[in-house]
């Protein structure tokens, strides 16, 4: 008998009134948000902003995609940040394997692109740049970001440069900043007057470089002339490619302990430069992120 009563009327007046209120509130919220959303979606197509701005890294020759694992964990520890790490390896047959993941709500993940064939030499670098462009396209369609920062260690910087001059077209994806460490634009050649084929090619196509790019090139020296492997003159030769062509070109010379070619990415001085110029890149966050104002305006 009681059971039937439940169906007929609510058990308490208070409860009944609260239910009425619930639906009134829902209705009050629904009407304005319906029109705002309609309006938003109309304009959404034009300004669809993915908050993701990855830091894409290319290791040097004979290193694999795992090259930066220590660097990333050092940075996460040192600055108490939580960047995720995604490692891609592009194989000789153009296929890609993924390792790691981009965490939810991580807008500044590290993405490392390594190559199965990671050998030195100009012809290999050309190939690696092509492989990188394959990986880059895959990332682009998979994660839908519209800006990123680049980092290259040693020959990784050459791959970046070749990629920017040959494959990268300014189709809505913006490269904010690039940083390279010990990138030998003139290979092992000390004398900048003697230009290698690669340097000549780079200079010839320099007008293809994105002209809003900011680039920090770091050179290490041990004994005034080189970092143990790469002569400082070879790093410096990058000025012929970038100066006057991109927005800012900065050459930084690191000396002291750990300024050798391969150790350089463990160097605390380098890590703080990297953090300051690349991770803290203000352009990397979309304008909406720095603005406290609502998006729907």
């Amino acid at each position: 008998m009681m059971k039937n009563n439940f169906r007929k009327y609510p058990a308490s007046k208070k409860g009944f009134r609260a239910i009425i209120w619930l639906f009134i509130i829902l209705l009050l919220v629904a009407i304005p948000s319906y029109f705002t959303t309609k309006n938003d979606i109309k304009t959404l197509a034009g300004r669809y902003n993915s908050p993701l701005s990855p830091i894409i890294m290319i290791p040097g020759s004979s290193a694999s995609a795992t090259r930066f694992e220590d660097l990333v964990s050092t940075i996460n520890k040192k600055f108490d940040e939580h960047h995720s790490l995604l490692e891609l390896t592009v194989h000789k047959d153009d296929s890609i394997t993924y390792k790691g993941s981009i965490k939810n709500n991580d807008t500044r993940p590290f993405i490392v692109v390594g190559f199965e064939n990671n050998k030195d030499g100009y012809s290999n670098i050309k190939q690696q740049a092509r492989w990188f462009s394959i990986a880059f396209d895959a990332l682009k369609s998979r994660y839908k970001f519209n800006n990123f920062d680049g980092f290259g260690h040693s020959n990784g910087g050459l791959i970046w440069t070749y990629f920017l001059e040959h494959y990268y077209e300014d189709d809505g994806i913006n490269m904010n900043r690039m940083m390279t460490v010990g990138t030998p634009y003139n290979f092992e050649e000390r004398d900048q007057a003697k230009r290698t084929q690669m340097l000549t090619d780079f200079i010839n196509r320099k007008n293809k470089l994105p002209n809003d790019l900011t680039y920090y090139s770091i050179a290490g020296t041990k004994v005034y002339t080189d970092d143990g492997i790469v002569p400082i003159g070879s790093v410096e030769a990058g000025k012929y490619i970038f100066e006057g062509q991109i927005n800012h070109y900065t050459l930084i010379t690191l000396t002291g302990k750990n300024a050798q070619h391969s150790d350089m990415i463990d160097n605390p001085q380098f890590i703080s430069l990297f953090h300051q110029y690349i991770i803290d890149d203000k352009n990397a966050t979309s304008p909406n992120n720095t603005d406290r104002r609502s998006v729907s305006k």
């Binding site: 609260a18 239910i19 619930l22 829902l26």
Partner: peptide
């Protein structure tokens, strides 16, 4: 759950808690 309580419950504690947490729950 809130609607269920407001609808059938006779327990004052349940009803009061549901009413108080109605706004955040919406």
């Amino acid at each position: 759950l809130i609607i269920a309580i407001l609808w059938v419950s006779r327990d004052h504690d349940f009803i009061n808690v549901s009413r108080w947490s109605l706004i955040p729950s919406i």
